[in-house]
Each structure stands twice: as structure tokens, then as C-alpha cells.
Design a protein around this nucleic acid. Structure first.
Length: 473
RNA sequence: GGCGCUAUCGUCUAACGGUUAGGACAGAGCCCUCUCAAGGCUUAAAUAGGGGUUCGAUUCCCCUUAGCGCUACCA
């Protein structure tokens, strides 16, 4: 039974890299018919914020993939402490009474890594208990085996066999002097208790994994399977950070820019993973069916963005592909919601609205295009672009549009075919090319020189508004 | 500094020893056309450098270089 977890710590908004980690976990779990656990890793009381937690929920909610079980580490502190004390009892850990500050000063990065305080490691059980009982503050550290040389190993589903000499691993902290578990302890204790079978996370955890393997070993539990994912980085190769790269690293930015969740998910999946058959645009079902760790590659992926173009062009392209291919019924509610944010409501009934969406979406990229570029389909107060004005100012164009309006008003029928027939007939009568009238119509109807087939626009706008807009042109 | 991971077009990637090194986005051009998209076609663009192994290396090994990660009582 596959059980994977996504374990964000609420110290910032939901990061694009975290989102991808969540998605990969989710795809693997769904593929294997397993269980997806959402666990909030909030043991760092100093840095946790409620705002961050909300931002994480907001992001996950938008992704709309869901999860099966939910936990907060702060509700499980006793479990973590129990493991720390058990490791202490069994000699896999020891108390370190060195004050936190002094420790920092001790360390000189120039001469190799800090490994441990030998005196503390050597403290007798009795002495250790005595000092603890006397109220002296201490941290519990893992006693990394270093008496005899040995290798710590694990098999990574993405990176293959990994080994590191235990001599290069420091005696890391498990329990802080304030009684709070560290990430390593809490994470492993919970992974054991929640029977996590697969740990799928960022590659920045590879070095930590050796420590975790040691904890599992000390706890006498077989380690889960590990799958590390390459990192998502900025165009300059640097780690993505809010301070340096701004809101482009937050999931909600894409949502607020009118992305479809599937467009965003699809884009993220293609960063560091490939179905290996040249497919690019994929539905969530296709992604689930195709996902495997074989397809995950090992080098970091650059998200292509700049000051001028804050969104990766490929993300935009993928989104536009989904925008024009998903079922209209799934799209219309989202368009309606987006319009509402701009104070707009669709004309006509649901069927008509669906038709307007169908006609316009082929040249839109994000949901935001509906209320902006597509404003004329939902409101009368739209801008007249200079290029459109030129089309309207073609000799005699305005008069012909009024003439056309009159004929449309008089006609019984109002279909693309009838409008086209009427327009072409008028063009012949006036001795102008049909294109002149067609372009002038589009300009008068939408304020734009570009857009869908003009005859489709007539229908989208509706007979009354066509007449009105031609009258005002 | 120590330890670890990585290295194919500008970007995302395919090619698990033999290919004219493939696809996609972005760029350029053409076709289509009532405009703009879409779509179709064409074009430019890559195996970091050096050694091995091999009949043959993008692919396996070593070195160099570069990037990234970890090196906290952060996660």
C-alpha cells in the first residue's frame, strides 16, 4: 500500500517548487491507488505564521487535487518526544549540554564540518541524567556511529544508489532545549507513525536523507522508499526566493493571472519530468497514467521568466492549449467567476454564454483575457483601439454600417449565414470589398481590429446590441 | 573549507553504445484567411573541456570546470 505525504512548513506562501512536489506525490499516489497525506510541518514555532498556512491551503485548494488524510505536527509533539527519548534510552542519542550560543562560536567552517562535542558524547548515562535532573538545559543529538568506519546508504528512486560515510555526518539535533522536536525528528517520527511508504521531496533533502536513514535505523523501522526531485530554479540558476524573484514563485500568482489549474499543473509536470513520448499537453488523467520516477530527470529545471515577462512562455502556451480544449461546461463557471471580479455578467442565457466562450477562447491565453480583451462581449463600455478606428474610418464605412443595421433590424432571421448574406449583398451594391465592411463591423462591435470571425461576433453580441453599436459607431 | 548532486539548442526535454542528435516553447519566414489567433509547412539553434574504455561514445569511467544543495537547538 503506497502512502505518500506532502509536508510543507508554514513559513511562507505555497512555493512553486512545493506545488510541484505536491503534484508529483499526488500523481504517484493516484497512479498506485495509494493514500495521499497532507502534513503540516510546523515545529518551528518561531517562524510559523497563520497567514502562511492560509496561503498554502489557498494554493492547494486552487490546484484542486485534494488529499486523503491530514495532520499537523504541532498536534503530535508527544509522539516525536517519545521517539527522541527512546533513542536516548537505547543509546542512539545523547544529551548535549553545550549552550547554543557557545556552540556557534566554536565552529570554524574553514577547517571542515563540525561533527560533535566529544565530551558530551562521552558523558556517562548517570552524569547525563543527573545534570538533566538538576535542570540544566540540553539538546538531544543523534549519536552518529563513528567508532568504526561505515557507510550510510539508501536507494533513491530518481538518483539511484546513494552512499555517504558516517564520518561526514554530524551529530544532528533531535530535540531542542525548549523541548520542541527538530525537523529531522518530527519528520521521521511521523513518517514511521503514519506508515509512509514513499518520501517524495525536493533534492535539497538528499543530504538530510542520510540522517533520516540513521533515525529509522535507530528506531528499528525499515526506511521508506525515497524519491528526490530536481529543484526548480530561476533563470540565473539561483534558488527561487520571494525576496529576489518576487511573486512569480507563489502559486497564487498564477491563479491570479488567470491560469487554469490544469494548465499550471501540466506546466509544472514538464519541469523535471517527461512522459518520453513527446507529449506536452496532457490532462490530469493522462498525467496520472504516465507518471513514473523513471521519467524524472536529475538536473535542476529553470523556470523561464524575466522582469518584462514574469510568466514562463511555455506555461502560457500550455494554458492556452487547455483553455481551448477543455469541455466548455468546465470552463464557463470559471469564466463567469472571472467576469464577476470585473463587475461583468454574461449576456443572454447559459447556452449563449457557452457559445460566446467557445467563439472567443480560441484566441485567448488566460481567463483574464475574457474580461479584458473580450470585454466587448460582456459590456457596452469598451475601448476603441486606434487600429479599429482606422477600419471604421474607411470611406463610407459608418454609413454602410447604419444601412446594414437597418437591414438586420428588418430581417426575420439572425444567423451567421443571414448576416453574411446581407453584408455581402450590401458590399456589392455599394461597390466595396466585403472585407472593408467585415473589418468595420468587427471594429464597431468590439473596438478591436482583431478577433474572431466577424459573423460569429454579430451572433455573440446579439441583434439589439449590433444595431445599437452600429448606430453609435 | 568539507560532503553530496548535476551538466544535450535561449528555455523545457527525447535519444537507457551505432540517429542526418528528435520534439515543444520562444524567434524568423511561408501557406491559409474578413482581421487576429489557431492550424500546416520551412528555417536558425545543443551534447561544457580534457583524458580514457570500445570497432564505435550524448550515452560507461576518471579529471577539470561550472552550477546547485547540505554543512543550525530552519524546514
Amino acid at each position: 500500500m503506497v502512502r505518500a505525504r506532502f509536508a510543507p512548513s508554514p513559513t511562507g506562501y505555497l512555493h512553486i517548487g512545493s506545488a510541484r512536489t505536491f503534484i508529483f506525490n499526488w500523481l504517484y499516489v493516484r497512479r498506485q491507488k495509494g493514500t495521499m497525506v497532507l502534513r503540516i510541518d510546523d515545529t518551528d514555532v518561531e517562524r510559523n505564521t497563520e497567514a502562511s498556512l492560509n496561503s498554502i491551503y489557498e494554493g492547494l485548494e486552487w490546484l484542486n487535487l485534494g488529499w486523503d488524510e491530514f495532520y499537523r505536527q504541532s498536534d503530535r509533539l508527544d509522539l516525536h518526544r517519545q521517539l527522541a527519548y527512546r533513542l536516548l534510552e537505547e543509546g542512539h542519542a545523547y544529551r548535549d549540554f553545550t549552550p547554543a550560543q557557545a556552540e556557534l562560536e566554536d565552529r570554524k567552517p574553514s577547517d571542515g564540518p563540525w561533527l560533535c562535542h566529544p565530551e558530551m558524547r562521552a558523558l556517562s548515562r548517570e552524569e547525563s541524567s543527573r545534570r538533566a535532573q538538576a535542570g540544566e538545559p540540553f539538546v538531544i543529538r543523534y549519536r552518529v556511529p563513528r567508532d568504526t568506519p561505515r557507510e550510510v546508504k539508501f536507494q533513491d528512486l530518481v538518483y539511484g544508489a546513494q552512499t555517504k560515510s558516517a564520518a561526514d555526518i554530524e551529530d544532528f539535533a533531535l530535540l531542542r532545549s525548549n523541548g520542541m522536536p527538530t525537523y529531522h525528528l518530527a519528520s521521521c517520527a511521523d513518517d514511521i507513525d503514519l506508515k509512509i511508504s514513499h518520501i517524495i521531496r525536493g533534492q535539497d533533502h538528499i543530504s538530510n536523507t542520510y540522517k533520516h536513514v540513521l533515525i529509522f535505523e535507530g528506531a528499528g523501522t525499515p526506511a521508506p522508499q525515497f524519491a528526490h526531485l530536481p529543484l526548480l530554479v530561476a533563470p540565473d540558476g539561483a534558488k527561487l526566493s520571494k525576496r529576489k524573484h518576487g511573486p512569480v514563485v507563489s502559486v497564487t500568482t498564477y491563479r491570479d493571472n488567470g491560469f487554469l489549474a490544469i494548465g499550471y499543473i501540466n506546466f509544472l509536470c514538464l519541469l523535471g519530468w517527461s512522459p518520453k513520448d513527446n507529449r506536452e499537453q496532457m490532462t490530469i488523467e493522462e498525467l496520472t497514467a504516465a507518471f513514473s520516477f523513471e521519467g524524472v530527470n536529475r538536473s535542476n529545471a529553470v523556470i523561464n521568466f524575466s522582469e518584462e515577462d514574469p510568466i514562463d512562455p511555455k506555461a502560457l502556451w500550455l494554458n492556452s492549449q487547455h483553455l481551448r480544449t477543455i469541455a466548455v461546461e468546465t470552463l464557463t463557471p470559471q469564466v463567469r467567476a472571472t467576469l464577476a471580479k470585473f463587475g461583468l455578467t454574461p449576456y443572454g442565457d447559459e447556452e449563449h454564454f457557452a457559445h460566446v466562450v467557445e467563439v472567443t477562447r480560441a484566441r485567448f491565453t488566460t481567463l483574464l483575457d475574457f474580461p479584458t480583451k473580450g470585454r466587448a462581449y460582456f459590456a457596452d463600455d469598451f475601448e476603441m483601439e486606434p487600429k479599429a478606428l482606422e477600419k471604421l474610418e474607411a470611406p463610407g464605412a459608418r454609413e454602410m454600417l447604419r444601412e446594414l443595421a437597418g437591414r438586420i433590424a428588418a430581417n426575420l432571421e439572425f444567423t451567421e449565414a443571414s448576416v453574411e448574406a446581407e453584408l455581402r449583398k450590401l458590399a456589392v451594391e455599394k461597390g466595396v470589398k466585403a472585407g472593408v465592411l467585415i473589418n468595420a463591423s468587427r471594429a464597431a462591435l468590439t473596438g478591436q481590429s482583431v478577433g474572431p470571425s466577424a459573423f460569429a461576433v454579430f451572433l455573440c453580441v446579439g441583434r439589439e446590441r449590433v444595431i445599437a453599436r452600429f448606430g453609435k459607431a
